[in-house]
Deep mutational scan, measured.
Amino acid sequence: HMTFVALYDYVASGETDLSFKKGERLQIVNNTEGDWWLAHSLTTGRTGYISSNYVAPSD
């Protein structure tokens, strides 16, 4: 899985979204569905959809 880092804080707007904080590391589970990616937070252990605009590759 690809690992990304959050560029900004994000508060989930629905049950399927994932809230995260700036600097949080996220593993991308599925990024084939446009701008919203299914991600797993390595910080909180939660999984949900994130906006690809809010993250950048961590490598």
Rank of each mutant, 00 (worst) to 15 (best):
H1D: 12
H1K: 13
H1I: 13
H1E: 12
H1G: 14
M2Y: 10
T3P: 04
T3S: 08
T3Q: 11
F4W: 13
F4Q: 02
F4E: 01
F4I: 05
V5D: 04
V5M: 06
V5N: 02
V5K: 03
V5L: 06
V5W: 04
A6H: 00
A6T: 13
A6M: 04
L7R: 05
L7N: 03
L7G: 03
Y8W: 09
Y8L: 10
Y8T: 08
Y8R: 07
Y8C: 15
Y8G: 06
Y8H: 08
D9S: 05
D9I: 04
D9H: 03
D9Y: 03
Y10N: 05
Y10G: 02
Y10M: 05
Y10W: 06
Y10C: 10
V11T: 12
V11S: 08
V11K: 08
V11I: 13
A12F: 03
A12M: 04
A12E: 03
A12K: 04
S13Q: 14
S13R: 13
S13W: 09
S13G: 08
S13Y: 09
G14K: 15
G14W: 11
G14I: 11
G14Q: 13
G14R: 15
E15I: 09
E15R: 07
E15C: 13
E15Q: 09
T16A: 12
T16G: 14
T16Q: 13
T16Y: 14
T16W: 15
D17W: 14
D17N: 10
L18T: 03
L18I: 07
L18C: 03
F20H: 01
F20S: 00
F20Y: 07
F20M: 04
K21L: 09
K21A: 08
K21D: 05
K21Q: 11
K22Q: 08
K22N: 02
K22F: 04
G23E: 01
G23V: 01
E24R: 00
E24I: 03
E24C: 02
R25S: 07
R25I: 15
R25L: 15
R25F: 14
R25D: 04
L26Q: 00
Q27E: 11
Q27C: 15
Q27P: 00
Q27V: 15
Q27G: 04
Q27Y: 14
I28S: 05
I28V: 11
I28K: 07
I28N: 05
V29F: 10
V29C: 14
V29S: 06
N30K: 09
N30P: 05
N30A: 11
N30H: 09
N30F: 09
N30E: 10
N31I: 13
N31V: 11
N31K: 14
N31H: 12
N31Y: 14
T32P: 08
T32F: 10
T32Y: 08
T32E: 09
E33N: 14
E33K: 11
E33F: 11
E33P: 07
G34L: 07
G34S: 10
G34N: 08
G34H: 08
D35R: 07
D35Y: 08
D35E: 13
D35L: 09
W36A: 07
W37D: 00
W37G: 00
L38R: 02
L38N: 01
L38C: 11
A39F: 05
A39M: 12
A39E: 00
A39I: 05
H40I: 15
H40P: 00
H40V: 15
H40Q: 13
H40E: 09
S41Y: 04
S41A: 02
S41L: 03
S41G: 01
S41D: 02
S41N: 12
S41T: 02
L42Y: 05
L42Q: 06
L42R: 03
L42F: 07
T43E: 13
T43Q: 08
T43R: 07
T44L: 01
T44A: 02
G45Q: 05
G45T: 02
G45K: 05
G45E: 04
G45H: 09
G45I: 03
R46I: 06
T47D: 06
T47F: 12
T47R: 07
T47E: 07
T47P: 01
G48D: 01
G48P: 00
Y49C: 09
Y49M: 10
Y49W: 14
Y49K: 05
I50K: 00
I50T: 00
I50Q: 00
I50Y: 00
I50D: 00
I50L: 07
S51D: 14
S51H: 15
S51L: 15
S52E: 05
S52Q: 08
S52V: 09
N53Y: 14
N53V: 12
N53M: 14
Y54S: 13
Y54G: 06
Y54Q: 09
V55L: 09
V55D: 02
V55Y: 04
A56T: 13
A56Q: 12
A56C: 14
A56E: 11
P57T: 08
P57D: 06
P57M: 11
P57S: 08
S58L: 15
S58E: 15
S58D: 15
S58M: 15
S58G: 10
S58N: 09
D59P: 13
D59S: 12
D59A: 15
D59F: 13
